[in-house]
Design a protein around this nucleic acid. Sequence first.
DNA 1: GTACTTGCAAATAATTTGCAAATAT
DNA 2: ATATTTGCAAATTATTTGCAAGTAC
Lengths: 149, 149
Amino acid sequence: MAGGRGSEDILHELRRRGYRWTRPRQAVARVLAGAHDWLTPEEVHARARRQWPRLGLVSVYRTLGLLADLGFARRVHLEDGCHGYALSSLEHGHYLICRRCQQVLEFPGCDLQPLLRRVARRTGFVIQQHMLELIGVCPECQAAVGIEE
Amino acid sequence: MAGGRGSEDILHELRRRGYRWTRPRQAVARVLAGAHDWLTPEEVHARARRQWPRLGLVSVYRTLGLLADLGFARRVHLEDGCHGYALSSLEHGHYLICRRCQQVLEFPGCDLQPLLRRVARRTGFVIQQHMLELIGVCPECQAAVGIEE
DNA sequence: GTACTTGCAAATAATTTGCAAATAT
DNA sequence: ATATTTGCAAATTATTTGCAAGTAC
């Protein structure tokens, strides 16, 4: 929904909506904005603490939930269910996830419209949202696998 | 991977692989085969107990995990992360989920190949799997909403 | 008979809530 | 000033593990 490339964008949107721009929220937003992999709440907590040591894990959960609700972050679901968060930086995009290094790449536009229309027509469903995630191995890890393992 | 329309198919595949066809597994497989909505492990447990009252929740978790590994069941991920299971009845399909009644419809083929190829070329990723879920409202619930709410 | 599987209880992990103190505006 | 937000501790929920007893083959 909202396109945020950095924490300034988040700041403005939060303010606009009447939320306060607090140190804990800043710390979480910066961590997410600076990461190019997905992070569990626990990992966000660990990193954000370097900026704001008294940050509690609970606030991380709350902030991540808030950012997800506002469209700044997306939950990342893996096959085994446990999930993390990554910053949502594009209008409408989906994730490409490296299963080795957890890098997350967002890619725009998804050409799913014809498929969605066909399924809707065949089933009678009104389709409201969709979730698409691609899982694979990034170029760096492809190279690394040959060496390490 | 394996196409199972009923619990007999599961039986044969488990046997073939050296697993035993036990009452707890039968009960879980039948529940999943008979459901046309997704179920949490807790719900599977409640239903399967009607067939095998001494069934433990732990065995439900174990059996669901096994069925998922063998390709008979798929995990269903919702936006908020908590997940359930549904029987996987087609070679390669994806889920269409009704957010009101939890009905799950599987639809075949997904025409994602061109997209996958394009993304792979642009990013250098080797794409190994993908997850696609469509979320909406089924025809029955569309009608019901007008009446109830 | 034997190896696999189960169920229980307990451990662990993940997430949420109540509430007084802190703080952004 | 005051309504929002925080952090802690505790509660809740979800899932996994160790192990003796049970069961399919």
